[in-house]
Structures are given as structure tokens and as C-alpha cells.
Design a protein around this nucleic acid. Structure first.
Lengths: 224, 224
DNA sequence: GTCACCTTTGACGATTTCTTGACGGCCCCC
DNA sequence: GGGGGCCGTCAAGAAATCGTCAAAGGTGAC
């Protein structure tokens, strides 16, 4: 089932979207502000995000950037502003479509179909190899030698951020923000703790990691 | 170069699109009716199609269907009709986006960027060449002859400031401020120390630097 | 209430990185 | 020719960071 995350601070609109999307066979989650949206997205890993730009806590483009950091799921932006500059900013931040309110629900559904059609058959099961383990981010599964390995939610989030940036260094501040939230800046002991757990579960030789690498003083890197 | 096929029977609009797209680095072809469009598409295999629905010879959805039969290139539909039924029909026929005329050219370009961004993820981060080494600032990676070279955090910061101002002289005070903070003004020995380390790691002949140059009494300069 | 699991915290050597001081060579100016 | 300033280099102590172990909250299931 296709998972859709609806982000809107107006309960009526959120409710209307939820009902219509659910009626067409989508699995719908909702969030009412930017922080909630980012957390919910990390938790449920949606296939599509419908995002209202008029959120109370964050600028819309920040939310888009936060999502784009780790997911390629289509982002469909709703907004009351029809100004071209707004549209351009949102689209260039990483949004896939921009619909101005008031909108026709039928058209929105068609745009949702168009967006999911592209991304749907494109990616089957993006499995990543780490040491002797295979990681399936979409299915949230890790196997090693036929055995299934369980990861905790925090371990998943951390691993996902790293795997979505293969080869690239991810700063420790960025990791903390993405996994624990914007208020965490210096709790690098969290990173040490969870990186050690991930290595123990995934790496062939946890003491000498070959794929989950430390860049001293900067952050961590996943090497395929 | 990204190839765009513009299909419109109104010469003014087709011309305006061609000029704007070409100005932004796209390779543009044009067609003025549906049959031409399908033939041109088969010939040049575009990466994106901008399609006006009001064609003289065929219905717009037929053109979309004809393209969708063999290509997954994004189709961006232009139309004077704002009716939702039209939009839904076009989107469900296989279009990726639908823009009603009159449209803002900046917005259209943003939608083109959004559409091509999805389909063409073959964008590696830009690398800079220094001596025999390749520096990837985004990934925080340095290679030289297949070997990986490690830089410390301070070395990265210093190198980044220089590389982001290619060819330009950066004063030593500016370097100290950017890397160590606003309280450092005269600690030029830091610069000497770290410039020497960078040269040893990056330059072909560290004693006679070819890219990380000293401007005596002023500062340092990166020469590409 | 108890249990199992996950998250958060604290602390400690081992290692890397940063800072600091000193010395000689070079160039420019006097 | 002499002097001063600036740069490159080397070496060693100080500081920060990392991996690891251990244990204290928290939360939900039963």
C-alpha cells in the first residue's frame, strides 16, 4: 500500500485530504507542524508527502530541505500563495509539484497519481550491502547469512541517513539534527554509542569497520 | 546537455520557450503539431517534453499516449484550459505536470528543473584538481592516484575557504577569522603550519607549490 | 507489578589533533 | 653589507575526540 504523509495545520483540510486519499486506497498519516512532519516522515518512511507551506513553526522550504536530505519521495506542495517567487523557491528546494489553494480535489488526486507513478516502479528494493549484511531500507529489514537482524528505531534512522548519502561525509551535527532533532548539537556520545551498535550488528569486524567509517572531528561516512 | 522538445502550434510561444530554455543551458527542439512531435521525439529522444494541448491535428492525450508508449521522459503540459477535468485527463494519460496559460516563465523553468532533477540523478559532486589530487568538497574526500588522503577538520576548513575563492587572494586575517574565529588576528604561524600540511598532502612538489600559493605579506591564493 | 527492551548518561584509557615555541633561510629596504 | 620582517620547517606538550564498558531512567507488554 502506498503511504502518504499529509502535513497541514488546518484540521479541516487535513481531514478532507485524509478522507479522500484513504478512499482511493492510500495509507495516510498526518502531521500539523514542521517538526512533527520530519519526525513522522522518519518514522513511517512515506512514499509521498503532501505539504502545506503555511506551517506555524518552520518555513516550508526548511521542511522540504529536511526531507530531501534523506528521502527522494515526491513532495507535493499546497499553498495559498500564488506568487511565482514562492513556487520557484519551493520547487527549487526540492518539491515536485505546487498546487495553489483552493484546489480541486480531483486534480490533486491526479497529481498524486502522476507523482507516485514515476517513483513507484522505478525503485524495487534498494538493498545495500554492508560487510556480510544486506540492508533493505524500504522494507526495514537486515539479513546476514539468512538470519534476520533487528535494529532499534534510532539505529534505523541513523543508518538511513548515512546510507542515503553513500560515500559522502555526514557531519555529526547534521546526524544529531536528523536523528534526534534540532535541539541536539553536542551530544556526540549518542553517535558514538549508536555507531558502535550498528557496527557490531552490521560490520564483519566491528573493531575495524570497513563501511561505517569515522572521520575524526567531523562526522561519519558510509562507504559502499 | 539536457534535450528538451517543445511542442506548440503558436509560433510566439514556441519561440519564447526556445529562447528561455536555451538561455538556461538546454538543447531545444520544436514541433508544431502532434505528428511532428511524435516523429521528432523518436528522432532526438528528448529528456523532457513541453507539450501544448491545443494542437491542430491530434488530441493532446493522444500525443501523450504516443510518447508514453516508449519513453519515460517527463512530459510537462501547457494548456489554456483550466478545467479540472482536462488536467485530470492529461495527468492520467501520463503527463507529469500541468501548467495553465498564461504562465510565468520563471515558474515554468522551475517546474522543468524539478522534472529533470528527478529523472537525471547522475549528478556527482563537483571535484577540484590540485596537483595530482582530486578534492571533493561536498563528500569531504581527497584522492591521489587511487589512494585516499585524510585531512583533519582544520585542514578541511582552511582548504575550503581557499577553494571557494578560486584565483582570488584571501587575506591572512580573513583566513584566520573564517577558520579559527573572530578572535584570531595575528596567529599567522597557524596559517604557516596548516598550509605546509596541506601542501605536503596535496601538492605534487610541496616545496614548490603550484596551486596553493603564498602572497608574501598579504595572504594565500588557490590557483586552479 | 514484573519483565524485556530501548534510550540516555557517565566515565576511562588510547589515539588523534591542535597549539605553541624555536630556528634558519629568503627577500626587501635601508 | 647589514638589519628586519616574513615564511617554511621541525618538534613536543596540551587538549580534544573516539571507542568501549557499565549502569541508570523510561516505556510498553503481559
Amino acid at each position: 500500500m502506498i503511504k502518504v504523509l499529509v502535513v497541514d495545520d488546518e484540521p479541516q483540510i487535513a481531514r478532507a485530504l485524509r478522507i479522500n486519499l484513504a478512499a482511493h486506497g492510500y495509507e495516510v498519516s498526518t502531521a500539523s507542524d514542521g517538526a512533527q512532519a520530519l519526525r513522522a516522515a522518519a518514522a513511517i518512511v512515506p512514499d509521498l508527502v503532501v505539504l502545506d507551506l503555511g506551517l506555524p513553526d518552520m518555513d516550508g522550504t526548511e521542511v522540504i530541505a529536511g526531507l530531501r536530505g534523506w528521502t527522494k519521495a515526491p513532495i507535493l506542495v499546497l499553498s495559498g500563495r500564488a506568487a511565482s517567487a514562492e513556487k520557484i523557491a519551493a520547487l527549487d528546494a526540492g518539491a515536485d509539484d505546487y498546487v495553489t489553494k483552493p484546489f480541486d480535489i480531483g486534480e490533486l488526486l491526479a497529481r498524486v497519481r502522476a507523482a507516485t507513478r514515476r517513483s513507484g516502479p522505478g525503485a524495487d528494493s534498494p538493498v545495500t550491502e554492508i560487510g556480510g549484511a544486506t540492508v533493505d531500507l524500504a522494507a526495514r529489514e537486515v539479513h546476514r547469512g539468512g538470519e534476520e537482524i533487528r535494529l532499534t528505531p534510532t539505529e534505523w534512522q541513523l543508518l538511513e541517513v548515512l546510507l542515503r548519502n553513500p560515500g559522502k561525509l555526514v557531519g555529526q551535527r547534521e546526524l544529531l539534527h536528523r536523528v534526534w532533532g534540532p535541539n541536539y548539537d553536542r551530544e556526540t556520545n549518542y553517535l558514538r554509542q549508536y555507531m558502535a551498535q550498528l557496527r557490531k550488528k552490521l560490520e564483519e569486524d566491528p573493531a575495524r569497520p570497513a563501511h561505517l567509517l569515522t572521520e575524526p572531528g567531523m562526522g561519519y561516512r558510509f562507504r559502499p
